[in-house]
């Protein structure tokens, strides 16, 4: 196995170990803790009164435009990263190219701003 893949394997093992430790702690807790069931304990908390309706009521999420902007900018950011590691190699050509790229990006943000979608209402 190459070093490259082995590093990612290590990350995977790291994650699994973390999950195992959390499981261990929760398991230890389930051995130690008491269980005295009373139906009142299992009612959802709603400031001390009986809950109204279901907990999964519909509500206005408000930020789908933000989410769209985020997806766009995040993908753009992924394009900036490889360029950022090679700034020296490209010199002024790269600066101008990336300047145009970021300018268009900023233009998109400015358009959203002028369209007043950057308001959380």
């Amino acid at each position: 196995m190459s070093d490259f893949l082995r590093d990612y394997l290590t990350v995977g093992i790291f994650g699994l170990t973390g999950v195992a430790l959390v499981g261990l702690l929760l398991g230890l807790g389930s051995v130690l803790r008491p269980t005295r069931a009373q139906p009142q304990k299992y009612i959802n908390y709603e400031s001390g009164v009986d809950p109204v309706g279901t907990g999964w009521g519909q509500s206005n999420v408000r930020y789908y435009v933000f989410a769209l902007l985020f997806v766009m900018f995040d993908v753009e950011a992924v394009f900036i990263f490889p360029f950022a590691t090679r700034v020296d190699a490209y010199g002024w050509f790269g600066v101008i190219e990336m300047g145009i790229f970021i300018f268009i990006l900023a233009l998109g943000l400015l358009y959203a701003w002028k369209k007043k979608v950057l308001r959380w209402l």
């Binding site: 999950v19 807790g29 803790r33 008491p34 269980t35 005295r36 299992y42 908390y45």
Partner: peptide
């Protein structure tokens, strides 16, 4: 460790248990 574990009866139990694992991992 000694505190009682209370899961609300309406909760989606499986997801309720998974959430802390994801945050900690």
């Amino acid at each position: 460790l000694q505190k009682e574990d209370i899961v609300p009866e309406r909760a989606d139990r499986r997801l309720f248990f998974i959430a802390p694992y994801i945050v900690l991992a």
